[in-house]
Amino acid sequence: MTRLAKMVGTSWRWLVGENGSARQILHHGFLVSAVLIGLFSAVFNYLMELTVPAYSVALAVISLMVMVMWYRSRFHGEFSRMSWLFCTLVTFVMLPGNWVFNHGASGPTLLFYLMAAAYVLGVLPPDRLRRGVIISGLMLMPWILLWGEMANPQLVSSYASTAMRSLDMGVSYTLAFGLLSLVIAGYAKRIREERDLARAYATKLERLSRLDSLTGLYNHRTIHEHAEHHLSGRDISCLLICDLDHFKQINDAHGHPYGDQVLAHFSMHIQTLSREYSGKAGRYGGEEFMILLPGNLAVAREFDRQLRESCEASPLAHGVIRFSTGVSERRHPDTLSSWVQRSDEALYHAKASGRDQLIVDHDISMV
């Protein structure tokens, strides 16, 4: 029994296309169900003599047409076109025909109109004109059919007996219940799909809100948060502030777009090296960058040396990117303000002492 259920589940997933969107899966499932229900109804109506034999033949032919629609949608990527054609066929051909040949208002057609409406609202592509035509048809067609039956009762067939009507309504209810279950499952999958998409967008927005749009490094607020985290720990760490040398002249000589390219290029070097050192890097403002490194001043000096070598190895149009660095090691009484200030003062001395060098805060001496 378990093996049979597994085979049925596998077959169903193949029929509806488990890798498609929720709308596509609902559409394919509804088409497959429409084919099965159409063929079953053709046989059922013929055996029970509920309608004329020609209607059973018409049901079988329409079921084959729907099977072709399923095939085109499932394997040829024609979901939008086939959903529109199927909705048109159901609204203006299949259900009106079912009304006429399956006992009008006394039969189950209104029930199937409701199922069709549930399907259409969840699947039909958001084309205003097409949606308007189909939804208007679903709203107005039953009224037209009711009026036509009232004006000309002889246009619709009648049940041979109350027992036959009860049997037809019972079977139709069961089929409609199956369709409704399928539609609800499709809506549930679509809700989950849209929820997951919303979560993915929220995660992406959260990540983007923490990054500088030009360089891809952490922005000012986020790098400060990481610095606060370093201050709350007990491990040794260093804070480096790097400032590009003569950046204004680069902008003036080559233009601001080129200046942005320089910032992005330098940020790439910082990002790559920071990851190797398990550090955090951010754009502190303008052409200034803040790097947080676990480890002592020797680690910070080695980081600075490798960063300069990396820049030397990949010069730009104006030449090698030169920069000055101020660094300080965290002290236990430090606040964020005092820690940043010591690195900033060291940077100021590096700039005042000729640039293109690293200065440590505790002795304000060139390294």
Rank of each mutant, 00 (worst) to 15 (best):
G9W: 12
G170N: 13
G20M: 09
R165M: 15
L26M: 15
V133R: 11
L89N: 02
T109E: 03
E49T: 12
L358P: 00
R330G: 09
R330D: 07
L182W: 09
A54K: 05
E193I: 01
S106A: 13
R165D: 12
D334I: 04
T335A: 11
R13G: 06
G97W: 03
V52T: 12
N251G: 06
E345G: 03
M94L: 15
F177D: 05
P257V: 03
V57K: 08
G29V: 02
R308G: 10
R283I: 07
H332R: 15
A188R: 10
L292K: 13
M48P: 00
G137T: 15
F247N: 01
R322A: 09
I191Q: 14
K189C: 03
S136T: 09
L167M: 15
L175N: 02
V367Q: 15
R165T: 08
V320H: 07
P333S: 03
T222Y: 07
L64G: 09
E149N: 15
G137Q: 04
S209P: 02
L175D: 03
R74A: 05
V327W: 05
V156W: 04
T174V: 15
G122I: 05
F112E: 01
D356R: 01
G285M: 07
L297W: 10
A188F: 14
K204T: 10
E193L: 01
R199D: 14
I191E: 14
C87N: 02
L208C: 03
P294R: 06
C242L: 12
A176C: 00
N98E: 08
S181Q: 11
T215Y: 02
E345S: 14
V133A: 13
Q249K: 04
T203Q: 12
Y348V: 13
L39R: 04
V156C: 05
G259S: 02
G132N: 06
